[in-house]
Simulated scan of single mutants.
Amino acid sequence: MALNPLNLLKTLAWRTTFAIRETGQALERLGCQMQGIYSHEEIINRHTSVSPIKFDAPKIPSSAFVAPSSLLLGKVSLGEGTSVWYNAVVRGDYGSVTIGKNSNIQDSAYVGACSEFSPYVVIGDNVSVGHGAVLKGCSVGNNTLIGMNAVISEGVEVGVSCIIAAGAYIEENSVVPPNEVWAGNPAKKLRDLKTSERDYLRSLPERYRELSGQHKEIMELLELKQHEYSR
């Protein structure tokens, strides 16, 4: 059975344009590799980092950084220069979560409420929430550091310029006065804050803001490259 000449021409045109496109992409990949750019090898991340719920959507200023693998859900408000890092979860489904300026929610941390009866979460300016920390229905004052894997229970009030040590557990409705270091399980006052530590608390958020700017540029480049290769 003879092949229709029109179909033959269409097939030839498709194969020719396909070969041109593949050749162009291969040259692009080679050029990127020679320049040390490997964004074309990245897998497209289909995870939704920002999601509305119950008619409430996160409010994120352009200066903030939200990592692709993190999750911001519902009534969440970020301040200017704030960053939410990889695998961190900030949930505003039960109640609102407000995070001030230049704060950072580090990798795998959880911030939110546990039920509709939980207090709202309020985190001040220049606050650093360490890796794996859990903050549930609490408030945290400005210039405070929550250590890695620390747990801040519902109703807790942490004052300004405090350090909550790594792995500490703050019991429900506890009040941590300003300028104190707490540690232990259950956590108690360890000592007053030192002058050198106060300086460190002021400098740490700025370092994270600079770092988040670098990561933001990388993610924007990856998104651009992935869009080019998916066309």
Rank of each mutant, 00 (worst) to 15 (best):
N4H: 12
L8I: 11
L9D: 14
T16P: 00
F18Q: 10
I20H: 09
I20P: 00
E22P: 00
G24Y: 09
L27R: 12
L30K: 09
I37F: 00
S39F: 03
H40I: 00
I43D: 09
H47T: 09
T48V: 14
S49D: 07
S51E: 15
A57P: 02
A57I: 11
A57E: 13
K59H: 12
A67E: 06
A67C: 07
P68L: 10
L71W: 07
G74A: 10
E80V: 07
V84F: 06
R91L: 04
G95T: 07
S96D: 08
I99R: 06
D107H: 09
A109K: 06
A109S: 15
G112K: 07
S118P: 06
V121K: 01
V122F: 10
G124L: 06
D125L: 05
D125S: 03
G130R: 00
A133V: 06
A133Q: 05
A133F: 11
A133Y: 08
L135E: 03
K136W: 09
S139W: 08
N142Y: 03
N149S: 15
V151G: 01
E154T: 03
V156I: 10
V156M: 08
E157H: 10
S161T: 12
G167D: 05
A168P: 02
A168E: 04
Y169P: 00
E180C: 14
W182K: 05
K188I: 13
R191E: 05
S212G: 06
M219P: 00
E220C: 03
K225G: 02
E228G: 07
